[in-house]
Simulated assay, not measured.
Amino acid sequence: MKIRRTIIVFDAADIDAESTFWASLLEGAVEKEDDWHSVYADGEWRLGIQLAPDHVAPRWPDGHPPQQIHLDLYIDDLEEGHRRVLELGGRLLKASDKPGSPDEFVVYADPAGHPFCLCRAPQG
């Protein structure tokens, strides 16, 4: 079996808000269908957003329903990333434990409540 493409798909009750958030954060675009949105960045399909009217956001870190998946996004400037996530409607879940360290990360939730991390990109 040869896997030709792997796409992460997020469930969301409001797929417009969810796809707009991710397309803006990834500096991409949204292709919309009725109950499915595809997010493209740099000309590549990056994420799918599926309509799930009864979606219940996970409660991070150890609530009900529990987190089942999250993304780690490695970036050069965590302060800029922090501002951008909040501007787009994301929420801070956990500030950095290790400010300035090479393995620093910050945890956020997207508009549908899915947790994700902005991580300091390795230098060099």
Rank of each mutant, 00 (worst) to 15 (best):
D76W: 00
V107P: 01
L51V: 12
G43Q: 04
I75M: 09
G124W: 03
V39L: 07
L78P: 12
L118W: 07
D14W: 01
G63V: 03
S38A: 14
D62G: 12
S101C: 06
L92A: 08
A121Y: 05
I75R: 01
D72H: 03
F21S: 07
G89H: 07
R84D: 03
F116V: 00
T20P: 10
A41H: 02
V56Y: 00
R84E: 06
W45N: 14
Q123H: 11
G90P: 00
F10W: 09
T6V: 14
L26R: 04
S19R: 06
D42C: 12
E80Y: 10
K2D: 07
R46G: 04
A52Q: 11
V9R: 05
T20C: 08
L25S: 06
H82C: 07
A29S: 15
L47E: 03
L73H: 09
I7K: 08
P102W: 08
I7V: 15
V56S: 04
H55E: 10
G48W: 07
P65W: 01
I15P: 01
L71A: 11
G81T: 04
R83D: 13
I8K: 12
G89E: 02
G90W: 06
A13S: 13
R59Y: 09
S38L: 15
P65F: 05
I69S: 15
A29R: 14
L25D: 04
P58I: 09
H55G: 02
G113P: 02
P53E: 10
L118K: 05
W22F: 04
W60D: 07
A23G: 11
E31D: 15
A17L: 02
A13E: 08
T6I: 12
H55T: 06
F116L: 11
S19W: 05
D110F: 03
Q123K: 13
A13Y: 05
P66Q: 15
Q68D: 12
R83W: 04
A57Q: 05
G113H: 10
F116K: 03
E44M: 15
P99G: 00
P66M: 13
D35M: 12
L26C: 10
P111Y: 09
Y40R: 12
L47W: 01
A52F: 06
R83T: 10
R120Q: 11
T6P: 07
V30D: 06
L88D: 11
